[in-house]
Design a protein around this nucleic acid. Structure first.
Lengths: 232, 232
DNA sequence: CGCTATGTTGATCCATATCAATAAGTGTGG
DNA sequence: CCACACTTATTGATATGGATCAACATAGCG
């Protein structure tokens, strides 16, 4: 891996507190690759040989069963994915494919496990990261089980708006087909759901979304920090 | 906490490898309580002051939003729950209530975090446990998004059968109302789903389930290790 | 033994999926 | 740069899974 990539990775919570020596040992065994769009990086069920770190681009995590497919999450720089499989030395539960041209670092899983044993700060960082991942999935499960698709979309838009700085207008960051799958619905239903939010001041034009009256939408969506906050 | 409870707890993966000194320090700060059925032990949103360990009985983890409620999981002895909130020092994402008379140990969260820093084996055990929890929730999410309720029930029954030792008959281990909620459906729908599985050899009488032809049911259910295996 | 909660069944309604057709983008090669 | 092909998005019509409402049965439990 080119040393120019080190600083970006070092800044991740996961690596920021570990000893230089250990960090460098991980980096020396790692390599970086550029992938074109739509490349399947990993397939669910495969052994987890590498911890992946996305440096640029974006990656879709998805799962399949019996001919059906669903998007589980989207990963964006700079972050790791499939940490749980790596530390458990267990098969991947999700597949991953690049959505666009992406630069991805690969650290051999056994190196991660070895350094984990040697570096307390790294171990602690892994715990924090895993706890975060776990809590995120629990929130998604609550979203899926407690809300209708219209409510999920409304809350999704409010979350997006929030991390777009609260602007009334912002762009969806991936295609609607994928958004539909992430939210657990069909593209047709998503299309109608956007219509269904018009009475609450939501309008869409291509990827551009406008939230005309945030409070009105919130009255409908009833966002809840225990489902919608990504920081807690 | 009475010392007689120590051995059971010590056997948990989470505590089995840590130094005696640290284990005892955790136990000294902990206490054990007997709760009657239907007691709400924790409420989602509350600060996570204690790591809970269920010693006997059973506990339902559930969440609510906007007047709706759903069962997220059931915890049985001997295991911990709400580990992620404890290590992150973040609010509980789920509420917990006893389903029956239950004996529960409470370890102050700050003790857990302190010992975590001091004991590498404990840290490693926490990582493994968290990774396991994470992967379980991912499996549930796949189950919810990729399968119909009939398919979820069929696979649930096959899993139960498996850990009942493969017997053709076994008992559901909680009331159908709760099972319905766990599987993400209404009690009425569960009742009909059991009927819907009759053509595949499933019959029910109260809590007693009989799987007449496992292979036939499997042909319908299409169980998948990446969703239904709890060990991987 | 009755009371209350749970489970079943039926009728109906609603949300969402599916199927089909069209429109609008998007990228590619001439 | 345009024309074509192909994917994505929208819209409508319809089907269906599942929820809701209501009535009744049943099982625990005091």
């Amino acid at each position: 891996m080119p040393e120019s990539d080190y600083p970006d990775i070092r800044e991740l919570h996961l690596f920021s507190d570990m000893a230089d020596e250990h960090f460098l040992s991980l980096m020396r065994g790692a390599y970086v690759q550029n992938f074109p769009p739509q490349i399947e990086l990993i397939t669910e069920g495969d052994p987890s040989d590498f911890l992946h770190i996305i440096l640029s681009g974006s990656v879709d995590l998805f799962s399949t069963w019996n001919g059906r497919e669903t998007s589980m999450a989207t990963v964006r720089p700079i972050s790791t994915f499939i940490l749980a499989a790596t530390v458990k030395d267990a098969p991947y539960l999700m597949s991953a494919q690049t959505l666009e041209k992406s630069r991805i670092a690969l650290i051999p899983s056994q190196d991660v496990r070895a350094v984990f044993d040697a570096d307390g700060n790294f171990a602690r960082a892994i715990v924090t990261e895993l706890a975060q991942c776990y809590r995120s999935v629990v929130k998604v499960q609550k979203d899926l089980k407690l809300r209708t698709s219209l409510e999920r979309l409304a809350n999704y838009l409010l979350r997006k708006q929030k991390n777009a700085g609260g602007a009334a207008e912002f762009d969806l960051d991936y295609e609607k087909k994928r958004l539909a799958s992430v939210l657990g619905m069909t593209p047709e239903n998503l299309s109608r759901a956007f219509k269904g939010l018009q009475p609450y001041g939501v309008s869409v034009n291509g990827a551009r979304v406008r939230i005309g009256d945030q409070e009105d939408l919130e009255r409908f969506a009833k966002p809840n920090p225990l489902i919608d906050d990504f920081t807690t």
